[in-house]
Design a protein around this nucleic acid. Sequence first.
DNA 1: CTGAAAGCGCTTACAG
DNA 2: CTGAAAGCGCTTACAG
Lengths: 331, 331
Amino acid sequence: MATLKDVAKLADVDVSTVSRALNNTSYVHPETKARILAAVKELSYTPNVLAQGLRQGKRHTIGVLVPRLHMTVFAATTQGIEEEARKRGYATMICNTEDDAKIERESLNRLRNGFVDGIIITGTGRNSRIIRDIRTSGLAVTQIMRKQIENISSVTVDYEACGYEAVKYLAGKGCREIGLINGSMKLSPYKGRYDGYQRALKELGFSETCAVSESSVHSLEYGYQCAMELLAQNPELDAIMAATDIQGIGAMRALKESAVKVPDEIRVISLTGDIISGMLETSMTSLEMPAHEMGVKAAAMTIEEIEAPADHKPTPQHLVFSSELVERESG
Amino acid sequence: MATLKDVAKLADVDVSTVSRALNNTSYVHPETKARILAAVKELSYTPNVLAQGLRQGKRHTIGVLVPRLHMTVFAATTQGIEEEARKRGYATMICNTEDDAKIERESLNRLRNGFVDGIIITGTGRNSRIIRDIRTSGLAVTQIMRKQIENISSVTVDYEACGYEAVKYLAGKGCREIGLINGSMKLSPYKGRYDGYQRALKELGFSETCAVSESSVHSLEYGYQCAMELLAQNPELDAIMAATDIQGIGAMRALKESAVKVPDEIRVISLTGDIISGMLETSMTSLEMPAHEMGVKAAAMTIEEIEAPADHKPTPQHLVFSSELVERESG
DNA sequence: CTGAAAGCGCTTACAG
DNA sequence: CTGAAAGCGCTTACAG
């Protein structure tokens, strides 16, 4: 691999001149520059980003921590992050945490030192101290989907409104026994949806039916098993709200196997509408969240924070999107 | 951020001693070591990986280039790669290329210099020269899903067999007019599937019905539109083979909207079975590929190549998995 | 307009 | 057992 030194030697100038020529950081005589460019080409030189980063204290890279990519909304947010980051000259480093605090901690420790200028995280909620430390040490940090630390920027959805609106919508369709498939109440999106669900139920005088399962919350099985449980719990059930599309798909499968008609007997609605909802055999009514755009915004916020001068860092921003109810066949 | 120097000063030793103590690279007096560890703790020191990388010429990071994550099999392979890499102490850097040669080129150029020790790629096929260069310059490179460069390791599936087997299976069910939804023939997986499809058709004396669409090949719309086209092309159509699950889902939606019964009137089968196939309302018969395991293997191969001594680099390996036909409701 | 020098934070022969 | 020094590949004041 050719280095600056090689180029300098071939072009018969000092390395500093090469550096200046390549970075356009001060005027270089056109002839000299031409010689340098020729040498660069001949040696097919490309700068060592590691050395640049070390020297400049910047890597133009942001780390992204997500619980999972496969069949989750995070694939969409991550893609938004990637696109926006690339547009602004940043690379992304994606790490799966599996929602495991230990894996998350390892990734954070790896990222914090030298790898990245900023971090976008959908956290487990159990490494808040480290994340605050990282922020304090000067890295930009943005929370996406889950807001767990007050004074750190975030991009989220109004989950409470989602839960509330879904119940109201279903009630408007005549449903009275509405089941909820949800995730850990320790995580703000699930907690928020539950709160909204409960608030609406209270207003309507309905009673709650909730299910949890042992499976990974991001799995089809989770939705399947929870739906089965809801069915067992409440024979009068006439609607199911699923926290995610994947859960909703699993639930619809469970209903089909139980010979329950959707939406005639039980309506199904997803609270994290992703593009797939519209293409299912029975297309799924859902509260669509702008996952891709959320990723774009999170990347933009992070990079702006990175690039702000140290004495002018923006104060934490909290961007809250709202979901839009899209009516389809299932509900 | 504390540095080695800070630790050394606090522990009252030379930086080299700190380095040795931390890396267990030579005996350090227990008392000295204790002092150092205490200082590390007090300053909550973590090494700067950039500097380590620059010095050691190793980053313990592998780059992963995929066409897309959202709703593709690459989310599964990538997760396999991540897991295996983490297990072996490597981080991963994931880059989406959108199957765009220009984006791919940019990412490759960014990665090649200092960022990573190795690359795992599902390529566009249009940057083979750069990839070969990268390989020659000493980075480990592994192709996954698409094999486009002969003398570089790969992990793929026997796509030809997939296409062949699917036709034979459908013929066994009595189908005679089998349509294929496929992708660019310039990419080995699609080419392979087509070849297998054609070989089987020839053996059986069937004629071909193929569809392509303007949409992104990794989209639900693609499957939807292609299915509509197949229907229009061939009124006798009694089966559809879709290259991917997502296409298959889109196709089933198209059939439903066209009031065609699956599987009674038309059977549907996916050639890239992912976990979702089994959970659909009409579960989808598919040729399941071990996507996660393929990722694991690709990571293992890459890391083994990275860690092999320079004079003992393994020769390129080509790992070919076979798909397994799983019969479900759609076909 | 360009060169010489220092330094980013580490590791690793080389001494002792 | 530990220190002093060189060096990984760059950038950037400082001179001139």
